[in-house]
Simulated assay, not measured.
Amino acid sequence: MHIRRNPLLRTAVAVTVALGLTAGVTACADDGNDDSVITIGSTEADKSQWKVFQEKAEEAGLNVEIKGFTDYNTPNRALSEGDLDVNQFQHILFLADYNVNSNADLVPFGATQIFPLGLYFKDGTTVADVEEAGEVVVPSDTTNQGRAINVLVQAGLVTLKKDGLLSPTPADIDTDSSKVTVTAVDASQTVTAYQDGTPAVINNNFLEGADVTAADAVFKDDPSKPEAQPYINVWVTTADQVDNADYLKLVEIFHDPEVQAAVQEDTNGSAVEVTTSAEELQEILADTEAKIKEQN
């Protein structure tokens, strides 16, 4: 899920995508142009969720082909160029960055999940415990720093000088109105800080090193909150196909309990199912694109 030109967004998009995406392989060998086949681009075509998904799609009378990609740039280009019907591998922020920087108009038509970014505290279990500690460590890379600070905003621990910032930095924090101080360190050092007793926002790929799971988070971003919405992963197609009835069935199938069980198995329980409507997703996309253009 990575197309980057804006310095603030380059890494940001990449790392967050990495939380939810890994290299994939083609799950079906049919490369024909049969109009009855719906081709879906994914960077996780080798995951068990897609096998279950294909079975459920077949039961629903749909013939789907999962095309695997090993990088995050190609699936959107392939969709724009007509080599795919839809793709499902990215969150809204990544899609917005692609559209803005490629002059494209790809559109989300269904939500899948979000991979929450969490706040962890070895010596506490509540946000009040973190407030009492008085300090929180966040990753210093621009990818996760902005999202981490917004996690603290959602938790009520930090106030920004200006609301609604896509990628706030420590300089954007209103220290007088905030309940904790924020220290930015290398992402790997958030684990050390956590183990030493300092509350920390830890990237999902460092959780194992901290010997915690997503379930141990004191607080994590809420998909319903504006700060987290750009990180909702989505189904995407071209603007002229956004109301395609068969494509909309794909969204329903993805939320089938058996498919969701496979998603949880594939993600070690870190994925949170999201059912935000297509209309709202498109509003979030438009807002995110506007913020990217403003930053550019």
Results as ranks from 00 to 15, higher is better:
N33T: 14
T192C: 06
K225T: 09
Y247G: 01
D71Q: 08
D240W: 10
T143Q: 12
V218G: 05
I292Q: 01
L207P: 02
V158L: 10
T143Y: 05
E227D: 08
D243T: 12
T238H: 07
A155K: 05
T70R: 14
T190C: 15
C28L: 05
A171H: 10
K220D: 14
S270M: 05
P199D: 06
P139C: 13
G156F: 11
L207E: 00
A193V: 05
V138G: 02
L62I: 06
G197E: 13
Q260I: 13
P257W: 09
T39K: 15
P116T: 09
Y194G: 04
H255Y: 10
Q154A: 03
A214C: 04
K162N: 12
V182W: 00
K225W: 06
Y72G: 14
L152Y: 03
D105I: 03
N204M: 08
F94R: 00
D30Q: 11
P168A: 11
Q113M: 08
A171P: 01
G209I: 02
V127Y: 05
I38C: 01
D266G: 11
D240G: 07
D34S: 13
V137C: 06
L165I: 15
T112D: 01
D85H: 12
V86M: 11
T43Y: 03
E59N: 12
Y72E: 03
K161R: 13
A128H: 04
Q49V: 09
E59L: 12
P226I: 07
L281Q: 04
E279Y: 08
S270P: 03
Q260R: 12
G156P: 09
V259W: 01
